[in-house]
Design a protein around this nucleic acid. Sequence first.
DNA 1: ATTGGGGCCTCCG
DNA 2: TCGGAGGCCCCAA
Length: 105
Amino acid sequence: MDFDESVYRVLMQVPVGNVTTYKMIACALGKPMSSRAVGNALGRNPDPDGPPCYRVIKSDGSLGGYAGGVPEKIRRLRADGITVKDGRVVYLEKVLFTPKPLKHP
DNA sequence: ATTGGGGCCTCCG
DNA sequence: TCGGAGGCCCCAA
């Protein structure tokens, strides 16, 4: 299994209405220092309606980037019931999800 | 709020 | 094969 696929696999754990961070995904992969590489993987995602890349934000609470444009990222988050204000997720503590490590890394 | 430095993965010359 | 650049980042000043 290649790097990109493992990233998508972890991403599938994030429930509707929640978000996670590039960092947390990297940790779940057992590679705590690969957060930037995780961003790359998401950016290469072939199917916009596949893995919910918009549910991934930066560890400081700001949104980070999005291949489809940040405004689109915001729309999708709101469609999930998440409140976004001034480029940040509000009530982050309530919606932040911590993915579990993969059993098949 | 800014900034500089660092590590991971890929692509390209 | 090897080196350098850059990206949906992170963290400590």
